[in-house]
Write a protein that binds this DNA or RNA. Structure first.
Lengths: 292, 292
DNA sequence: CCCGGGAGG
DNA sequence: CCCTCCCGG
């Protein structure tokens, strides 16, 4: 349609296709292209490095391109900043935006309106954070089933270990205390080192690490990888699994289980930067029984 | 005698009195003054901060003054450097010197010849030290009883924790494997934090921390204390019990037990420095039965 | 030989 | 947002 063309030309990206004027037909085709079915839940989690002010516009364009390509039901973003948020909101009219703050940088939950029904949200404070971090929660309905969606950007840097683990315990506590009939998905930049999780005695009963559930695929292990990503100009090759997705399935009924996990944002932009210093995680879930 | 005067005047310290020409009478008076008896073993352990090149001569003079004041049977030094060692050797003719290395800085054991009979020595390597540290052992006879005397300067700094604990395990192993009829005394700069000992499950059976045996006296707790000692110009007040003495009594016969522990080197020199950034430990032991 | 922060790789 | 080194406190 003309209006669709207008949206495209006002935002000149080769792969960009956005707007609430997009026909249902083309949206469905899009979903089919990436193997989704209507019972499949697609989640993206991504620290988009709002603290890096270089090439911000190019990087947001690249982000929009990929978000448009995958059209995830739920997008969990960390290090959103007001200008980038504004751009996303202006383009992604078919998503509902929740944000954990208005200032500096913060997390956000984007819910695809046509598949995810927003019910309520909650912002949980981390009382001792020195970096303004918190936990953002959205309770939603997806295919008639209740979901709790959570995201956070846990305290950064090796030196933040103690505080980060306090925050992680709080995340797990909120996951555990979610209603039993809710499937709970946490996705975010945890800044975790494996030894830190070990230090807490591993994951609590009932909560799983989605990457581990999928058999620890090497190709989607490291979400922060300076051997490839040089946005930060770090000469050493360091690879860490900072970004993680945790799942607590509902106690009864069809169980949500992970189907795939892929890293996104691996392509270099024309400006030679990557969209972020983190790769994004694209994760699909499906409702099923243990029998199938 | 004239030669004694010569020694004194060639090393102009108010409190210095040294030389193998010192009369037995004055030596005994000296010992009596500090409460020693012939069955009492006096041990000094001290990291004399050879890595600090400021006021070296003044500091060595101060050290000599105190070593002369106490005339310990055994002196365990860490951070000896060749020039300081040479001065000590030239003055302290009544001591036998053992050193763990010839280069850089190293530990030494000084044995008072008229009370301690040297039998043999051993230098144990720490295979993974990054700071050239090792364990120096002397087997001696004191009052006809066999003693194992050990000293070491365990890996420094908070970051050296892992290596330091490896070294500590090795020290304890050598203490445990000393002959059963030997009393074993380790004294040195362990650089230990209390949580590190806890991490190893505490002291092994049969080995005790002398400061703990004496009831953890607060006044001899912290051997490194920047609230008083400003040699390192550290503005924060940090107090740590880096320097420790471990004891493994002989399996049979009269048991060596600690009698007192005092910190030394607490006075400021004329140059306004302390002798070292560490206090020294002055410790007395006595042979006795558990009945007395 | 404490700790933290800042620069450079 | 990695690490190491250096400096100042």
């Amino acid at each position: 349609s003309t209006s669709t063309q207008t949206v495209r030309s006002s935002f000149p990206l080769n792969q960009a296709y956005w707007g609430n004027t997009l026909t249902d037909q083309s949206a469905d085709q899009q979903k089919t292209q990436f193997g989704s079915r209507s019972s499949c839940l697609t989640v993206i989690s991504w620290n988009i490095d709002g603290l890096d002010s270089d090439n911000v516009f190019d990087r947001v364009k690249g982000l929009l391109s990929l978000l448009g390509k995958y059209r995830a039901d739920v997008v969990l973003l960390q290090e959103l900043i007001p200008p980038s948020l504004k751009i996303l909101q202006n383009i992604m009219k078919d998503y509902q935006f929740l944000q954990a703050s208005e200032e500096a940088y913060f997390t956000g939950i984007l819910l695809k309106k046509d598949s995810v029904q927003f019910l309520q949200s909650n912002i949980v404070k981390y009382p001792t954070t020195e970096m303004g971090r918190n936990l953002l929660i959205a309770n939603v309905s997806f295919l008639g089933r209740p979901l709790s969606i959570m995201t956070s950007h846990l305290e950064s840097c090796k030196t933040g270990s103690q505080e980060r683990l306090n925050q992680l315990r709080r995340v797990w506590k909120w996951m555990k205390e979610a209603p039993e009939d809710h499937s709970v998905i946490f996705g975010g930049d945890t800044n975790l080192r494996d030894w830190e999780v070990k230090k807490l005695g591993g994951l609590p009963d009932g909560i799983s690490d989605v990457w581990e559930m999928l058999g620890k695929p090497e190709e989607s292990r490291y979400t922060w990888d300076t051997s490839i990503n040089d946005n930060n100009e770090i000469p050493n090759s360091i690879r860490l699994r900072f970004d993680r997705i945790f799942l607590k399935p509902a106690a009864e009924g069809a169980q949500l289980r992970p189907e795939s996990m892929t890293l996104i944002g691996l392509e270099r932009l024309k400006c030679d930067y990557f969209i972020s210093d983190h790769w994004g995680i694209l994760c699909t879930f499906i409702f099923g029984t243990s029998e199938e």
